[in-house]
Structure formats: C-alpha cells, structure tokens
Design a protein around this nucleic acid. Structure first.
Lengths: 338, 338
DNA sequence: AATTGGCACTCAATCGTGATGAGTGCCAAA
DNA sequence: TTTGGCACTCATCACGATTGAGTGCCAATT
C-alpha cells in the first residue's frame, strides 16, 4: 500500500472510529487497529498531512483527531456503495407491503426510514403528474364561499376553497356547478385549460367562474402545496447523537418551517440522480450547520418524482444511512407506481 | 389575613417565583417580597406545614423549596381566571382572520398557540358531525382496488381505498359506481345506512359492494382518523424550559405516536367543559411525567367539537398558558363555525 | 525518502481540599 | 402565634496538584 493510499485509509479509520465511539481518535488507537500495520509515529505524520489539508482537526491540543466537514465529504465521496442488512431489507418490504393509500404509504415510509437510520426522516408527498379530470364538484360552504373538489383520473382528490365575492341563489349555484363539471370532465392539461377558459368567459357568466376555473386547474396539477412529513425527531435529542443542546432547537424550528428544507432538498435532487449528501456547512443554513442531510428522489424519474431524506448530526453512519435512504426510495418508487 | 390564608399565599408565591426564576425559593427571598409582611422564620413554619401536606419539596437539604405536582395542582385550582394581554388578543384575531380553508385554519392556530405560550401546541382536526352525502365517486386505482370519495353537504371530502378482491371489467365498475352514488346521494345517517344496506344486498350485486358501502358510511361520519398537528417542539429543548435532556426524547416520541396523546386529550375533554389541566403524574404516562398539559375543546359543543392543547414542562406559566389556550379555543370555534 | 523509537511538552479531565454561603430546623423568648 | 438567634447541612465554587492521553519533533534506522 502506497503512502498515499495509507493516508486515505487513516482518514477513513478516523471517520469510522469517531462515528462509532463519538470520541476523538488518537494515533495509538489507530495503530492498534488491524489493517494498517504501521507504527503510531507514522500515523502521526499522516495525521499532520491530513490536518494540513483540512480533512481532520483536533478539538484541543492533547486530544485525538476528529473529521472536519471536508473530511466527511472525502470519506463519502470515496465510499463503495454498501449493502443493506438483510433484516432491514425484510423490514422494508413487510412495512410497505400492506399500505392502503398514498398518505398511508408516505407515513409508513417516514417511520420506517427513521427507524432504520435512527435519525430524523423526511418524506415529501409525491408531486403528482398532471392528469385528466374525472369529476369536478362544487359544494356550498357558506353564503359567499364554495369548496371546489377535483377528482382526477389517477385517483387523487384535491380540494380548495374559493371566495365568491357574491351570494348567488342556490339555483344559480347549482347550474354553475353542473356546467363547471361538464366543461372539465375527462379533459387534461391544455385541453382542460382551453375548455375552462372558454367556460369562464362565456357571456353572462357569474363573476366567480374564473376563480373556480383556476381552482380546478390547480387541482388537476396536483396542488401547489408541497407537503413534508417527519418522523424520529426524538433521535435528535438522543444523548449519543452528538448534537449539543443548543444546536437542536434551531433544527427543530427549521423542520417545522419546512420552506427552507424543501428548497434545500430540491437543490440536492438536482445535483445527483442517486443519493445526494450535504454535510454541515454545505447545507448553507445556520440551523443545519451541525447536521448532515442525505436525500434521494423517488417515484418516476424527471419532474414527476418526489423526495425523501434522512437528517442527523454530521457524526453519523454515512454508509448505513445512505444505503437505507437508497433502499427506501427504491421501494417507495414501486409503491407509488402500483 | 389568617394563617391559613397566608400559607396559601406562600404556596402561590413559591410557584410564581419558581416558574419565573427556575430556581428553588427560600424563606428569606419570600419574606423580602412585598405582600406577606412576616419574617422568614414564620414562613419557614408555613413551609414545613406545606411540605408536610406534600405541596412543596426541597431538591436537597440546603436548598429552597419547589412546588410538587400536587402543589401546582393546588395553585391551578385556586386560580382566578386571568386575562390575556392585549397584544396577544390582537395577534389572535389577525392571525386567524385571513385563513382560507380548514387545514389553513388549523395550521395557523397551532403555530399561533405555540408562539403565544412558548410551548408545544397541539390542535386536533375538527371531528365533523355526520351529515348528508352530496356525492359518491368511485375511481379505479388499479386492477383490484378503488378509491371511494365522499363529498358531504357540509363541504368535506373524505376518501378511502377499498380492495375489490375481484377484477371487474370497466363496464361493471362504471355501473356500480353510478349505482352507489344514486343510492347514497342526498341521504344522511339512518336513511343513508338503510339505502346502502339495501343496495349492497341487491340480488346479483358485486361482491365488493359491501366494502364500498362501508367506506361511504365511514366517510359520511367524518372518517375514523383523528389527526393531530403540532408546532413549537423546539420549545421543549429550550435551555430555560426546565426539562432535563433525558426527559425530552420520550415526549417527542409520544407526540409522534399520537395515539396516547389523543386518548389523553379525550379523557381531559370529558372531565371539564372549560380548560382542563393535567400536571405531571396526573397524565398517567411515563413520557409526560415531567410535563403539564392544558387542553380545551373548541367548535360546537357536544360531540361535534374537537380539541386543542398546550404541552410544556410542569414548571410553566399556568395562568398565562390557560388564558392563551382558552382564547385560541374561542377564536377557533368562531373560525370553524363560519 | 519513508519509517520508527524516543522524549519533552501541552492541556483537558479528574480528584481532593477547603472555603463560602444559602437555607434549614429547632428552640426559647416575646 | 410570631420572631430572633443559632447550630447544622450540603451544594457550589475556587484552587491546586495530579494524571495521562496525545502530540510534535528529532535523530536513528531501513
């Protein structure tokens, strides 16, 4: 093994050691490890070089080394894809096999992922592709408001409240409701838009027809809300997790906020078509500065898909977590396709 | 003031002092307070009596006293209803005034409540009363499964997946879908049940008609799922919150679990028609042993209503939190009635 | 040029010690 | 019943000494 190779091995050993013990790793402890049969002094030289490169650091003078964000990054980039333990594999298939509907699938997945990784799991609801409208239903919900319900051909139901700005009689309301359905039924995308535009612009049409048409279009597109569900937030506060008390509250806040997280996940999805990893500072968010996020897309490729992720302290089991995220993403893809 | 009254005043002062400083309160500090003009020695006597009654305790010999669960209970029971700061009142009305639909109202409420109380807020989705079926829609979602969508007259949409145990042709499926809607349309409660029973039992009916009928009935009843949303979990880990690190993870787990919390809230709603309070051990749950829960019903009285709550460490500002919970419940009642 | 053993040095963590003082319980006096 | 006095307890803090893990550097070795 060349000295270059050994330096790399030393880095990996430091990462693995620190992740499993959560304590800085010294040269002596490393030398005792089987695998790299060299003396502590040699390892010290390698460590000095690695520190020079900014891959490891020491918390204080007389302590061992811990990986920096950059060190973790190197480790992750030079990682052979590891496989999932058989027990986990079985857990996934049994967990997801008897889900009854979409929200059930999503909820089971997020719980499963949090259990497999012992981290916080995040699953974004699938952003469903545009599809044909099966039926439009208008339900009166007060004098001047109505609920628009769109049932699409691929078995989704979207609803939205619209303000009428007007108090139509029941007769008028019923007629508009019937017409809206007739205009939209069976159509999709461009044809749907044309039909609804025409309908809303008919002479003598009620003033709120445009609002209804927009609601139907939005419903057909799968809604604008990008919902995200979590599980396993308690893993953040586990004593062995390695996040200081002060670092936890901002993370929980950011998770509840959602918007920051969703944008981050989108960025990550764009830059990799397998599993994407952001470590510490790479998240570019103060709240996540001490955490790492491992994300993967699921569902049909292209824009139709959606995202899931695992979030934990930078000191996490990267190979294991990446394998779990990849596996759940794969199963979830199957589950939503069915 | 009689000695009995003073003892009560001492207890209240201890609670208030401990809540605001999060440190045990000594006799000297109490005597310095204006209000009860007696010497530290007298207060010590009162304290001994209060400790005898189990209302206060001392963490260690040479420390001041802190309230026990029982002490907090006494304090809460003998509390004059306090009113909400004007700023909070304004916050409530502006926060809720421009909500667009039910889930928006619920989400705004839970955020608002967590901000007002600086605790974890929990809001249960309104369990809506049974109502007439406006329309039933069956959407095929695979060879042997279908989505049943029930739109009710009061502007709700419920959906459920049913397994057909059979792979009907599209023609048959369409016919059954039409018939199911005809059978259910416009009916409610008993009449609906009768009509669906008759429909499902018709000679020559498909085998899965019963499953569809059940799904429709359940949808009309508002579904069985009782969803709960949270906000402000980061407040649990705030350093000044007063929960030890180890106590936090179980709480987060229990919140995610939901089922325990929901049952607890139901119990609480039953025992009080104003604001109900459970303190520490009174929750009868290990996870909540160090927390207090303040719950109130909202929505129309009787079974139609639902619940919201605030959860935090037992060392919390009870009057303030109770006032906030009460106020949000009141506004929320208005919001869902509209 | 790379590796190794030796050695002095640094510094966090640990422990023991003593001082401090907040707070108590008890008792006798008012 | 209240109060002042007083001895007692015990967590907390500050100080110092010790320990030991781990390092950096250098000269010797391969």
């Amino acid at each position: 093994m060349s000295s270059e190779e050994r330096r790399r091995a030393v880095l990996c050993a430091i990462v693995e050691g620190y992740v499993s013990t959560s304590e800085p790793i010294g040269s002596k402890a490393l030398a005792a490890r089987p695998g790299l049969g060299v003396s502590p002094a040699t390892i010290r030289n390698d460590m000095a070089a690695l520190e020079e490169e900014g891959l490891i650091a020491q918390p204080h003078t007389s302590a061992g080394r811990i990986p920096t964000d950059k060190g973790y990054r190197y480790f992750v980039d030079h990682l052979a894809a590891s496989s999932l333990p058989g027990a986990h594999r079985r857990a996934i298939s049994t967990f997801l096999s008897d889900a009854v509907d979409l929200s059930d699938v999503v909820e089971r997945s997020v719980r499963l992922l949090s259990q497999l990784t012992r981290q916080v799991a995040v699953v974004q609801y699938p952003s469903l592709r545009e599809s044909r409208v099966r039926r439009v239903e208008l339900v009166r919900a007060g004098l001047d408001r109505a609920l628009v319900v769109v049932v699409s051909a691929d078995a989704r139901v979207e609803q939205a409240m619209v303000m009428l700005g007007d108090s139509p009689t029941d007769d008028v309301f019923e007629r508009v409701a019937r017409e809206a359905n007739e205009a939209a039924e069976g159509l999709g995308s461009a044809a749907l838009e044309r039909a609804l535009d025409e309908w809303a612009a008919r002479p003598g049409q009620v003033s709120w027809a445009r609002a209804v048409a927009d609601a139907v279009l939005e419903g057909a597109r799968g809604g604008t809300v990008e919902r995200v569900v979590f599980a396993g937030t308690s893993n953040l506060v586990r004593a062995d997790a390695g996040l200081e008390q002060d670092a936890i509250a901002p993370v929980l806040e950011a998770l509840e906020e959602q918007v920051v997280l969703i944008r981050l996940l989108h960025e990550m999805a764009r830059e990799s078509d397998d599993v994407a990893v952001r470590i510490g500072q790479e998240t570019h968010h103060e709240a996540f500065a001490k955490t790492a996020i491992i994300a993967a897309g699921y569902g049909p490729g292209g824009d139709g898909g959606s995202l899931l992720a695992s979030l934990g302290p930078t000191r996490m089991d990267y190979p294991g977590t990446m394998a779990a995220v990849r596996a759940v993403a794969r199963y979830l893809t199957k589950a939503v396709a069915a």
